[in-house]
Design a protein around this nucleic acid. Structure first.
Lengths: 119, 119
DNA sequence: CTACCATTTAGACGACCGTCGAACTATGCA
DNA sequence: TGCATAGTTCGACGGTCGTCTAAATGGTAG
């Protein structure tokens, strides 16, 4: 399915505490962060990312929330547009999986900070 | 200054891809993520975190943006309420610094994911 | 005490976001 | 062909968020 070329530049941005983030880099990263800064989307991402087979059917995701199908679909689209997940239709059902590099970029952004400041 | 006890439980939440996040954990983490999911606040956090002395005067932060002082003050308050930074007044000026453990928690949440899925 | 400066608080306004119900698309099956 | 099911898109509504101006607070210096 792959929504296209709205994925972020893979090489973008040193960790937050290494150097002040430029206006452009911040704007780019905020797309990723906004996608994740919602309780439903954070749980969706966690469900998809932690699923044994690596992919999850939308039907399972919808069932786990007290929300309508359109709402879940909307949240999945936000995550997909941000480049954090991708999806494919197989027969009747649609399956989603995580894009590890995109999620890892979020981790790299914050992780290396603990050392230079705390140490 | 320390806005009080709204800092998150330090032990909260395994990495996103280890196990599905509970509703409560997600709600708790979203406070942190929302605080960071704004371009101005992300740059503020980066400026504060990457500053040589470890702390920055508000006057320097305000000067770096095309926004009014109240707006910057508002964003700093959001970051402080989330427990990501703290501040102290010294004479005429107010200084802010980062709280490394809080920022590191964000890193831990996303980092370990790259391995089990990609490897 | 007064004047002045740095920062925060309060209140208002417009834009954005999460949610829903209704309608649409796509697949499978009889 | 036609119907049932899975999922998405559309349009609307209410609440949240970022920004501003105006006013208050805390501190220094005459």
């Amino acid at each position: 399915m792959s929504l296209g070329d709205n994925q972020l530049n893979q090489e973008c941005c040193a960790p937050i505490a290494r150097a002040p983030l430029s206006e452009a880099d911040a704007a780019e990263l905020v797309v990723l962060l906004k996608a994740v800064a919602d309780p439903v989307r954070l749980r969706l991402l966690s469900m998809i990312g932690s699923h044994p087979g690596g992919e999850v059917c939308v039907c399972d995701l919808t069932a786990a929330f007290d929300l309508t199908a359109p709402t879940i679909s909307h949240h999945l689209k936000v995550l997909r547009t941000a480049g954090l997940i991708d999806s494919e239709r197989r027969g009747t059902w649609v399956y989603y999986w995580i894009i590890p590099t995109a999620v890892a970029r979020l981790g790299e952004l914050f992780t290396p900070l603990a050392e230079p400041v705390a140490g």
